[in-house]
Design a protein around this nucleic acid. Sequence first.
DNA 1: AGAGATAATATGTAGCTACATAATAATTTG
DNA 2: CAAATTATTATGTAGCTACATATTATCTCT
Lengths: 233, 233
Amino acid sequence: MTTPQRHSWKDIRDRIHARILDRTYRPGDKLPHDEDMAQTLGCSRSTVQRAMQDLSESGLVERRRKGGTHVRPEPVARVTIEIPIIRKEVEDLGQRHGYQLLSRAALPPPAEIATRMELSAHVPCLHVRALHLAQDRPYLYEDRWINLQTAAEIDSVDLCTISANEWLVLNMPYTRCELRFFALAADADLAKALHTSPNTALFAIERTTWIDTQPITTVRTIGAPGYQLSAST
Amino acid sequence: MTTPQRHSWKDIRDRIHARILDRTYRPGDKLPHDEDMAQTLGCSRSTVQRAMQDLSESGLVERRRKGGTHVRPEPVARVTIEIPIIRKEVEDLGQRHGYQLLSRAALPPPAEIATRMELSAHVPCLHVRALHLAQDRPYLYEDRWINLQTAAEIDSVDLCTISANEWLVLNMPYTRCELRFFALAADADLAKALHTSPNTALFAIERTTWIDTQPITTVRTIGAPGYQLSAST
DNA sequence: AGAGATAATATGTAGCTACATAATAATTTG
DNA sequence: CAAATTATTATGTAGCTACATATTATCTCT
């Protein structure tokens, strides 16, 4: 055997991960230094570093210069959720997407909205309410406010043919996003729009985006009964 | 100027990102090759590659060998959520954590649970129900099933002093996790446990973990009224 | 024209050297 | 002894070379 064996960073990562899984290294334990591991595992330090970068990004280990690398003392479940364009979400379910613009008006934002967007109350906003359908049944209801100072072009967009959701995603890149997930009880309007009875428990997502310090939009998206969000690692 | 200027991958990433934000490169557009960018930006290809790795991992761009790098054609909102140990979650809110074991029994799992866990119905499981408090008020209710073949040691753990949630996180590393978020209406038991009225809309998280192909646990965690999950980028 | 095989290519990587830097440990000072 | 300063160190990185590999383009054959 004259050719030196190359080790991929994924192999190295998986070998370290296996030591965590079999509890050789437990939460809070210190792992050997990169240099020592490289020697033990027969690869270069930069390969160990690359492997550790991935383990660190997945939240399994914590790394500090000079302090070394530790298995995370208090493990968290970490999961990445992707929220696609709504039309795409429906289509990926193999269903026909439908869309209804329910209302559109240029209005000053109510105090709660202004607060959420970190916006002063006299900035002109576009208020859009819409319903997304899957196989002609209500799927998601959207109540959205758009800052007309940041996204002025949307004022001339025909929101009967493209949803504000889709137009914004395609045209307004953002640097900051705040999300929250919660449950709410349907009021009369919502119950009517989503074809359910008042007080039904509904799943809601609130999302606010900014480009640098400028608010773009805030939206409350409410799922029809049974809507859920899934993720896996 | 005789010393060559070094560019950090973060600078390079931010400069590329800025071109996406100012819409020089729009969704679906092809970015210049790494080698060309390295020349234009005055750094090495490996530095561009490192920058692109980050942009790709954040979901902004898609990279294919030979095909090149494109701004993601249909952008998604991508967010990473961390779910800590419940005790820690309460403490991080600056509140006093309390815990009540409501019930504990070794039982065969009902069909729905067995399905969720990808488990056969005669595998012995531990069924644990518990309530977590914040400042002596109900915070989260947990209904959990634990596979006694995978996590046999939990059978001898005193679950009055440490929650199953915490014990499992610290002692049962997992390789696979499935999560879903949804809303539900409180039944009589739940309403009583969470000090609310029947049919209140509640936020629920269901989480199932496996180590390799072996199911470890499945849990339905239900928040008290007003509970929400937040995340930001 | 379509299918299959081959060639080319742009990203992905291993390993190396040299350097940078955050943070920990050791030493010095009052 | 505590606080401040300095030294050390383990991770983080830039840039390079050589190589690997998934995928796209091109060519050949029927």
